[in-house]
Design a protein around this nucleic acid. Structure first.
Length: 400
RNA sequence: GGAGGGGUGGGUGAGUGGUUAAUACCACCAGACUGUAAAUCUGGCGCCCGGAAGGGCUACGUAGGUUCGAAUCCUACCCCCUCCA
């Protein structure tokens, strides 16, 4: 492997590698490595934030290494301690399988299934006994676990830490034993867990895994990390127009980080864009459009990316009416109804009060003409286009 | 086992008898602006009736009670947290 390729592989989209020098040596031996990554089957959607480590896995697969995907059907019951969530209800076998299927359909959009081994935690935790649990827990101390920033913070703030949460890193660590992991992948919030796996392997006579730690991307709010529960994510399974649009709604300040960590835009261009993003006169919108295209292309192909861009330029920038409008059939006895009723019926407003608010705020247009009042529905004509705000459209049909 | 603190709108979190559909912030929606769904500024942000003015209903863990009137007081219950053991 040449130096620039190695550099790209181990630096871009990477926060830290423990231990980097040893991992490089290992890579140079040419031995196929077992690359571990886990997922929690209670939250089966993959977003652009997850794609950062997955893209690294893909790059390593291309060098002949094997991905070991762990389905965390036991840890899912505990809940990820790095989140706010607590112990969760036990998932049934059927739920786990259904979620795993959903997850893998997305996972294999990035990862090569032919170089992937999928393992379920229940394979080894199913037969676990209490003495196995005690044996595992006896290897660590409370103080060691309280060193984890997340736990330490909550402990200081007098916030609860469930005992099962302390078990989470242990189970994850034991997974590394079970699959004989060489390298484990995770975001910066996973550092502690990855290290416990490394330690445990050493204690149990395995070669300690290396930890491949990737950055967490901010979500579409530009502040908090991308996550499904915060609703600030761009899912890799979303429709092209949504991926494009959500990307365009990113604050300009995070665009460079996305391009660096979640796309294959060449390094030189990335450096240039980083410089430009500090410059108010630079073409920031152009940068963001580039990012949006790159993301759509990754998940839906280049043609879809161009389509999404054209649509965005027409509908959002040009404020044109899209041609693929949903159709709404006007209900009978329009004489008794008003525009607000139609907005609710067409799903453009959640309640009559909201519909009236939209009208009052000047957000509603009929055939591009602003509507000043909650006019009677009998004045609405079949074929007319109602627009509410920037993104809600409907074409009327029937009635009269 | 003992002591104390707390449960408010999507989230955080004010509010201790009427002026509170409930401060503030976040999120969200809309408008303006920018040929970005960014940033910024402005407004909105429970539901129903009404063209509007306005009116009504529901809501502060649950169930009762006191009162002309309760998120605010009382009783019981449920749930959560901290500390001591």
């Amino acid at each position: 492997m040449n130096d620039s390729r190695l550099h790209r592989l181990l630096r871009r989209g990477v926060t830290e590698i423990i231990v980097e020098s040893e991992l490089i040596e290992l890579l140079e031996t040419g031995r196929p490595l077992r690359l571990k990554i886990g997922f929690d089957p209670s939250a089966p959607d993959i977003h652009v934030g997850h794609s950062v480590p997955l893209r690294k896995l893909r790059q390593l697969q291309e060098l002949g290494h094997t991905v070991v995907l762990i389905v965390g059907d036991w840890t899912a019951q505990i809940g990820d301690p790095s989140g706010r969530s607590r112990t969760r209800p036990m998932l049934t076998r059927e739920q786990v399988m259904a979620n795993a299927e959903t997850y893998m359909a997305q996972f294999f959009k990035i990862i090569d299934p032919d170089r992937t081994e999928t393992r379920f935690q229940s394979d080894w935790f199913g037969p676990f006994t209490l003495s196995d649990v005690i044996g595992l827990t006896s290897r660590f101390t409370v103080a060691q676990f309280l060193a984890r920033e997340d736990f330490a913070k909550r402990y200081r703030a007098n916030q609860p830490i469930a005992i099962t949460e302390l078990l989470y890193p242990l189970l994850q660590a034991y997974d590394s034993i079970a699959v004989e992991s060489d390298v484990e992948f995770g975001g910066t919030d996973q550092k502690f867990n990855l290290l416990v796996g490394r330690d445990l392997q050493g204690m149990m006579g395995q070669r300690p895994q290396h930890c491949f730690i990737t950055p967490l991307l901010p979500g579409t709010d530009g502040v908090q990390k991308m996550s499904k529960s915060l609703g600030n994510y761009i899912g890799i399974d979303e429709l092209p127009n949504d991926v494009y649009g959500k990307t365009m709604s990113l604050p300009d300040s995070v665009v460079a980080a996305y391009i660096e960590n979640a796309t294959d835009v060449p390094d030189e261009e990335v450096e240039e864009m980083k410089r430009a993003s500090a410059d108010a006169s630079a073409d920031r919108m152009g940068m963001k459009k580039r990012l949006a295209r790159e993301l759509v292309a990754q998940f839906h192909g280049g043609a879809a990316a161009l389509d999404a861009e054209r649509r965005f330029e027409r509908i959002v920038q040009g404020r044109e009416t899209p041609d693929d409008l949903p159709v709404f059939d006007l209900p009978p006895n329009l004489e008794a109804r008003r525009l607000s009723d139609v907005l609710v019926g067409a799903g453009m407003a959640g309640s009559a009060a909201e519909a009236k608010r939209l009208i009052d705020q000047g957000a509603v247009r009929i055939d591009d003409a602003p509507v000043a009042a909650n006019i009677p529905a009998s004045t609405l004509k079949s074929g007319a286009v109602i627009r509410a705000g920037r993104r809600r459209f409907v074409r009327l049909r029937g009635g009269g």
